[in-house]
Amino acid sequence: MKKLSNLLVVMALTVAGLNAQLSVSTPYDPSQIPAQAVPCAGGGAPCARLFNPYDVNNALHSTENWGGTLVLAQRITLPVLPACGYRLGAIEVPTFVQGFTAIAGNFELWTSAGNVPGALIHRSPDYAVGFVHLGLTRYDVPAAVAGTLNQGTSYWISFYGLLPAGSGTGNPRVFWGMTSPAANQANGNVGMACRYSGAPFGGAACPAWTTVAACAAVAAFGQNGLGYDINLCAGAGGLVIGGNPVPTMTQWGLFLFGLVLLTLAVVTVFNFSRRGKIA
């Protein structure tokens, strides 16, 4: 029994030592954690950016965008971060300024089909008071939608307004104001995409998604080359499947190793106790 208890003590010390060694060799690195969003519902400072894609090559200068008459879309690419498992919490477009009056609006999220949007993933409920809060346009992405999005994948986003009933010709509108300081991003980016019904600017309609450059009436607004400032905000909290592996396989392996040793120890003690009784 004395030899057995010595053996068990040695095993326990070995397990503890391995655990300490593994803890030292895999230190926690806070720089691997992505920035978290600063709540800014109702206005305030812009959220902490995951990154700023400037994923445009051609863009429009102060173009009106209202109702379903003219809808613009811009491509974003979710960043691939070392600490995987973040959830897209919100999308902000600080340069998307409010026009004459607040309008109702929608946000759309599309898959990417190269230079244009592909399939619609999500359309927000109608926003009765619009997205604009103190000059900051922000859409909080629902968790169920964010959970379907993948890192390193491109999507298209669109903010647009709805015409309120009886608005007549004095349409409230939201401008894509070019206050962003973005410079030309000549790195192979695609331009903005648009759908245009043919009114009120005249010219040929572009009913299906097409690049702005290919839709003459919209491209006539000119001034290409500037990008829209877009913030992609990490969502806080929520269950993330397949995120940062904690506990790690190393920790689980150690736990199972300890459990096997403990089981062997219990079986050994059981066998010794039975032999003792028989004797």
Binding site: G85, G237, L239, V240, I241, G242, G243, N244, P245, V246, P247, T248, M249, W252, F255, L256, L259, V260, T263
Partner: peptide, 18 residues
């Protein structure tokens, strides 16, 4: 930890019978 990983599933499958 607020999350589950595939390691947890495999670990539990092995640990529970043991």
């Amino acid at each position: 930890w607020g999350e589950f990983t595939p390691s947890d599933i495999i670990g539990m499958l092995v640990a529970t019978p043991l």
